[in-house]
Design a protein around this nucleic acid. Structure first.
Length: 420
DNA sequence: TCTGGGGTCCTAGGACCC
DNA sequence: TCTGGGGTCCTAGGACCC
């Protein structure tokens, strides 16, 4: 499918929903909080102007913001889901090809509307606000990535009136010049840092970079991004919503929990919720995963992340069957205990090596071993991580070389390795 | 005694998004 | 004392197979 793509995004969606049923909130700074009132997940424009930051833990900033007259709401997902469905139904009147991307966003194919894109988008925008009361912004471009960008700029610049079209190269140039790498859809801190290392510092430089070079140093995802920025679509519009590949129900406790009984109860409750969701979507599962982890915001305390998957003989969405599997998974995590450290993973590898080359590994501080480790490091530096690892070949142990990352080559001759 | 190349599958973890 | 919850995709590396 080709032709212009529009991204329609609801403005400050959760805050707008709250306002719809409480008109007194209009024009006031409104903030919506996550489960347990943990952190900020939505802000009205007025709240943004007062400096409320997305994701801030509420208990740390509460006093400051309340002094500014900010109004707080706990989240109400049933309400948001309902209003979302109304918005999406309205959008469906404006195109035959609609992809519901998230609770407050949808991509629309505007093929056939070339020549009157702007007028069509403004009509859409007015209709949505009239029928649902939810204000939206529209970005239009040849690819999803550019449409995302157009939408972002449409929201930011009041002169756009909520609609921006990036149809020409000049318009795309001007838009890309205004933003930073991390403003791109799919680029956050880590990937931006990686791009800077290879000399790509701006969105324009990324668009004009050699796609093969980018793929080599980042990944196929970033290569696609280059093409998308050039106006060549790599991400299709998916107008049929695929079935979920996983369904999760999880909650933080909000305090430390150490009693097994309490974990069991919580896991049973969450499993029941997940099973319900599954039945509502006409799905079933053949495996159940349970995870438990410690409070990552207490870095001085020992950290643990335990996870376990249990398979069912037959796919099911039956609550009691799924809870049974979840209880087995939890018990297994519990038995494994909290002593499963990184050292526990590394140690067996060194054991295997010691069998194969006892003289080398007998003394951990031996000169030979240090030399070998330096050689391994330098080879991995030259050919990329994982170019050389210790592994098995049949019943033998050996060094696995993958200089091209394709065809592994095994050798037990570490003297040979030292010469490389 | 020495010696491979070509795969597939699975899991853990990284990175991102809303 | 209190820091969300729910997803997707990709890669690396080990295990295993012939």
């Amino acid at each position: 499918m080709s032709g212009p793509i529009a991204l329609v995004d609801c403005n400050n969606f959760y805050a707008s929903c709250e306002r719809l049923f409480q008109p007194a909130l209009r024009g006031k700074p409104v903030v919506v909080l996550s489960n347990n009132d943990g952190c900020v997940i939505a802000r009205s424009n007025e709240a943004k102007a007062l400096g409320v930051v997305m994701g801030d833990p509420w208990h740390l900033v509460k006093e400051k913001h309340k002094a500014n007259g900010i109004i707080v709401r706990s989240s109400n997902y049933t309400l948001y889901g309902d209003l979302s469905a109304r918005v999406m139904r309205t959008l469906a009147d404006f195109t035959p090809d609609l992809e519901i991307y998230s609770i407050d966003e949808a991509f629309l194919s505007l093929a056939g509307f070339e020549g009157r894109l702007d007028a069509h988008a403004r009509d859409l925008r007015a209709t949505v606000v009239q029928w649902t009361g939810i204000p939206v912004s529209v970005g239009i471009a040849p690819t999803k990535t550019l449409a995302k960008l157009a939408n972002r700029l449409a929201k930011k610049d009041p002169a756009c009136g909520g609609v921006l079209t990036l149809a020409t190269l000049q318009a795309q140039d001007a838009a890309l010049e205004k933003i930073a790498l991390t403003d791109l859809w799919g680029v956050a801190g880590r990937l931006a840092a990686r791009l800077r290392v290879i000399g790509v510092n701006t969105p324009l430089e990324l668009r004009d970079a050699d796609p093969k070079f980018v793929r080599e140093h980042c990944s196929v995802v970033m290569e696609r991004m280059v093409y998308e920025l050039r106006g060549t679509p790599c991400l299709d519009l998916e107008d049929v919503t695929p079935d979920r590949k996983s369904i999760m129900a999880s909650r933080s406790f909000g305090r430390s929990v150490t009693a097994f009984r309490e974990l069991e109860e919580a896991v049973a409750t969450h499993t029941a919720r997940a099973a319900e969701k599954m039945r509502r979507q006409n799905l079933a599962t053949a495996s159940v995963v349970v995870f438990v982890h410690t409070n990552k915001f207490k870095p001085t305390a020992p950290q643990y992340y335990g996870t376990r998957e249990v398979e069912l003989p037959v796919a099911s969405a039956d609550t009691s069957k799924l809870i049974g599997a979840a209880m087995r998974a939890l018990a297994s995590i519990w038995r494994k205990g909290f002593g499963y450290s990184k050292a526990g993973v590394i140690f067996p590898v060194l054991c295997a090596a010691a069998e194969a080359t006892p003289d080398l590994f007998a003394a951990p501080d031996s000169v030979e071993r240090k030399r070998l480790m330096r050689t391994v490091d330098s080879l991995n530096g030259r050919y990329g991580r994982g170019a050389i690892t210790y592994g098995t070949m049949g019943r033998q142990h050996g060094w696995k070389l993958r200089s091209d990352h394709k065809s592994p080559h095994y050798t037990t001759d570490w003297e040979q390795l030292l010469k490389v």
